[in-house]
Amino acid sequence: MRSLTYRPADTFLYRLHPVTKGVGTFLWILWFSLHPWGLPASLAGLLGLLLVARLGGVPVLEILRELRGLILLLIVVALINLGGEGPAVGWRAGDAVVRVCGIFLWSAVLVTISSPAELTHFWELAFRPLGLFGVAAHELALVMVIGLRFLPVVLEEMERIRMAQAARGAGLPAGAGLVARVHHLLPLLIPTLVLSIHRASDLALAMEARGYRLSGQRSRYHEFRPQAGDLAAAFLLLALIIGTLWGRWPAASLGRGL
């Protein structure tokens, strides 16, 4: 998952307001989860998504490569759907797999086109209702952003520990099965966890040294203003989601239900 990080660029996708990007992703996931038109629509949606991402300057091939990490999940999803009854089980399984891929890919695109400041801004807004229950939205958003910042670093450290262990003869034998691989991960987790805790402690100290206070009044380096592109994107996404809801629960059946 190393390439899943912000890649600065200046295209129409990158210029969208953080709220448009975040809500757009949510609606897109909703569409992939709910649409009633089966495999052709899922495939069309996936291709459309890839096209938009490519036109928007996103390194699509690199993101597609990250799908390798999901193979196990995709196999499980396919097997569950193949076990069902009725005609066209294969189509249904294929549809489910494409939907999962679509949801993952768009989430990856969101991370690629959104700077941490944009993500913080969006998550802060998204978490604001939790303030009613005493949850600090900014802190929660910052935790998520720091998680994103240090994910590649932690993975790098894990790889270093793995190599150090392999150099001392604790490597994974060739052709090892799934259970052996999972078993092999365990000795990596403890040192990685310890290192991460040390790193978190140092970072907390450094943040405090740079004036970070939980209750402090902060200003913002980035100011986000909606533009015409946001309006167009919002209109398209809303049309898509209303169309989907209409297709899934037509007004007639809704009326009958009432």
């Binding site: 990080t5 912000y6 600065p8 941490p116 994103l148 910042r149 740079r210 206070r213 902060r218 200003s219």
Partner: peptide
């Protein structure tokens, strides 16, 4: 703290 150079430089002044 920041993921990009400018965001890290801005962290202290923001605080």
């Amino acid at each position: 703290v920041g993921v990009t150079v400018e965001e890290d430089l801005a962290f202290g002044p923001e605080n």
